[in-house]
Design a protein around this nucleic acid. Structure first.
Lengths: 119, 119
DNA sequence: TTATCATATGAATAATCTTTCATATGTATA
DNA sequence: TATACATATGAAAGATTATTCATATGATAA
């Protein structure tokens, strides 16, 4: 703490620290949340997610849509699924992937808008 | 493409691929968006962001709030700032950091809600 | 203008992650 | 039941990243 803080400043600072402590997530939740952001922080996986935001796709079609190799796409989908970014269901021989829920759709939308602020 | 797709299925599939192509971001935008998610995908940086979501803080107070070392926090803030997650302004000797904008606040809120779905 | 305070930065090491290749699993069909 | 098909997975190599230490910068106060 800066040595020349006034008493009022010190009190405000204490209040801030308390607010932060009260609001802060547990280390476990923090780690989970960070892992979920990390799942969508690789261009390859983000591309998959954006493709899925147009509608459900099986692995083969996804692979075509994003232009990759089957094994890589499958690994990427596992990361997305483990982090509840996408969901999977079987249909015959195929596994169909979809965006997990509305929170994820909203994140995509918000991130796109954030990006548009650059222009 | 699966060899036994019916003509109707093939047409639907073509439609899907076109939708994806039309909606897909450029490689550059994809990279930028991914980098921004990556910025908030490390527990240390996410913790800083959550602290700032309670209100602005200078580096020293932030360092106390998240419990780290000054150099590390400074590096983390640079990553967040470079990716437009936070903003900085000078006030005397101090640099005050704030959450960049409402998009980021919404992302935090949405991510928290997504997390709450686990329980 | 020198000393001090607050923050930033470069370089290096250690840790983590992504992709690929080879192969395994599970489902449907002949 | 044997074969083909769609997807998943383990291991390993290469690439990327986070943190630390030492030091630099920029601002204020003496």
């Amino acid at each position: 703490m800066a040595i020349n803080d006034s008493p009022v400043e010190r009190a405000e600072h204490e209040q801030r620290l308390q607010d932060v402590r009260r609001t802060m997530l547990s280390d476990e939740k923090l780690a989970t949340m960070a892992a979920r952001f990390k799942a969508i922080s690789e261009p390859s996986r983000l591309k998959i997610l954006l493709a899925l935001s147009c509608g459900e796709l099986c692995v083969e079609h996804l692979t075509q849509a994003v232009g990759g190799n089957q094994s890589a796409v499958s690994h990427q989908l596992k990361t997305l699924k483990d982090n509840k970014i996408v969901r999977a269901r079987r249909n015959g021989k195929q596994i169909i992937y979809t965006v997990a829920d509305e929170h994820i759709m909203l994140m995509i939308k918000t991130a796109k808008e954030h990006l548009d602020c650059d222009e």
